[in-house]
Structure formats: C-alpha cells, structure tokens
Computed example of a mutant assay.
Amino acid sequence: MTERNTEARHPASQGLHARDASVVLGALLSAQVQAIEALRPALPALERAADAAAVALRDGGKLGYAGAGSSGLMALADCLELAGTFGLPVERTPMLFAGGAAALLHMQGSVEDDPALALADLDRSGLGRGDMVLVLSASGSTPYALTTAEAARARGVKVAGFANVAGSALLGLADIPVLIDTGPEVVSGSTRMGAATAQKVALNMLSVLVGIRLGHVHDGYMVNVVADNAKLVDRAARIVAAVAQVPRGAAEAALQQTHGAVKPAILVARGHSPDDAHKALERTGGHLADLID
C-alpha cells in the first residue's frame, strides 16, 4: 500500500513526546488551523454539493450521510443537528454509520472493512433515485464508504464524496468530489485530528448553505427551528420579535397561533392570519424574503 499524505510525517512530529506542554499544544493548534485553511480550495465543490442537497430536499427527497470511524462521527454530528437547527424531518436525513449504534460506544475498526454492512445500511436508509448522500472518508479508500458510494450511485442517488487524499478512490466514484487536502497529522495517521476537524467544518458550512437555499435561514436567524426545549422556545420568540420587528409579547402571541412554527409566526406578527401566512409561504417555497423584505 502506497503511503497516503494523511499517513506521512508532520514536521512538528519529531520529538513531540519530549517537548513542553505549551509547545505541544501550540503545535496542535497550528495544525488544526492549517487543516481548516485547506477548505478554501474546496469551497466551489462545497457549493455544488449544497445546491444539489437543497434540490433533493426541496423536491421531497432525502439527504443521507455516511461514514466510518472519525469521519462517520463528523457526519453523524452534522446529521443529528439538522432537525433542531433547520426543522428537517429525521426520516429525510438518514445516517449510515459503520457498525451502527453499538459502534458509537465501542469503536471497532473492523466494521469499516465490511461491504455487506454498507449495503445493509443503504437498504435501511431508503435512499433512492432523486436523493443525495454525503460520503466521508479521510483516506478516501475505506471499504464501507466506497461500497456506499458505488451502490448509491447505482440506485440513482447523487453522491458527494469527502476525502482528504487527492486522487483517492472515493473522489473518483463521487458525482461531486470534495477534496480537503489537510496533509500529515501531528500524531501520524490520527485523522481524528486535522482531517476530521476540516470535515466537520465543511459539513457545518454545507448544511448552513442548504438551510439558506431552503429558506430556513433568514437574515442569519434559524427561522425553521423546532422549539422542543425551553432554550429553543425562548429563541423562537426572540427570532420572531427580531425579524417581524415587534415586541416580545406580540411574538409570543403569534407563536401560540402557529403552534410554535417560527416562519408563519413572523408573518402573523406582521398582520397575517395563520392561514394566510401558511399559504403565502407555500407560494414562496418557504422563503420569507419575498414576503417581508
């Protein structure tokens, strides 16, 4: 097996064990910052991936996430936040994680080498023609990720492949290849560090852009937030008050009329009836800008 750049030696690795703690921490921080900077060349690919994901969701399809090990954990973290942040139904954002829930408590390397697990997870996800899946692998050669990407494409699913090694197999399989060339790790081969950090930041940016494309982010506010705890109920009231430019009491009253739904509450606070607010949002595809700007 040829050496991948994620397995190569980082200049700061030599003698790392013998350095002062402050020097070690400084080297690790610098490496993390450099890893994030590696995202700049990937921005056009991230935009294409976000646009494709938004189209899939807008047309009633699904946006799946897939990965193993650290890459899978980064994918899982972003996937789980979509419902609370953007109000996306969980059944439309399936997660394919090598080893399933059991692997979240006891990580097992062997599961990432099992193509049968990938196929079974893909079957359970329900992903099909018109849907999209984001497949992550630092090396770009993880069997679980490659099998998922290949089988998904065969089913008509659009694949965005995220890898940290140029020329890797996953990038070759993907409809939208996203190369994040983070290079060697300070702890050689530990891609849970720079590579995983950059992957998570990439997914953060992608999902926010998807939210904007779907009209779930307006003026920097999460206007499709699902208020299922005290913090989010308070946030929903503050969002309605700010966007509708009304007092807090009027915002809370509007939210009561819309059963906590923020977008229609913003319109209700500005004088619409709940029914008219919902109809107006249907006409604009869920975007507030045409209705209040």
Rank of each mutant, 00 (worst) to 15 (best):
V233P: 10
V226Q: 11
V226E: 04
A237W: 05
N224F: 03
P264A: 02
L267W: 01
S273I: 01
V233D: 12
A261V: 00
Y221S: 00
Q245F: 12
Q245I: 01
M222S: 04
N224Y: 10
I266T: 05
H259P: 04
N224S: 14
A265C: 08
V217E: 08
R238F: 08
A241W: 13
A251D: 09
V225A: 01
V217R: 00
K263M: 06
Q256E: 09
D275I: 05
H259Q: 11
G220I: 05
E252C: 06
A242K: 08
Q256C: 13
L232A: 03
H278D: 08
G260C: 01
A250W: 11
P247V: 13
K279M: 00
I266E: 06
A244I: 10
A237D: 09
L267T: 12
H218G: 04
A241V: 13
R235G: 06
A250E: 15
I239A: 02
D276E: 11
R238P: 06
R238Y: 05
V243T: 09
R248F: 12
P264I: 01
D275T: 10
D276C: 00
D276Q: 04
P274C: 07
A230S: 15
L255K: 12
I239S: 03
L255S: 07
H272G: 00
R270V: 11
L255A: 13
V243L: 07
S273A: 00
G220R: 11
R270E: 09
A251P: 09
I239Y: 04
A250G: 01
V262F: 02
V243I: 13
R270H: 14
R235W: 00
V262I: 15
Y221K: 06
H259M: 05
D228Y: 14
Q256K: 12
V223C: 03
Y221M: 05
R270M: 09
V268Y: 01
L232M: 08
V240T: 09
A250Y: 11
A230D: 15
Y221R: 03
H218L: 00
E252R: 14
V246N: 10
H272I: 02
A265W: 02
A241L: 10
L232C: 02
P264D: 05
H259F: 08
Q245M: 09
K279Q: 04
R235H: 04
A237K: 06
V217M: 07
V262Y: 02
D228S: 14
A265H: 06
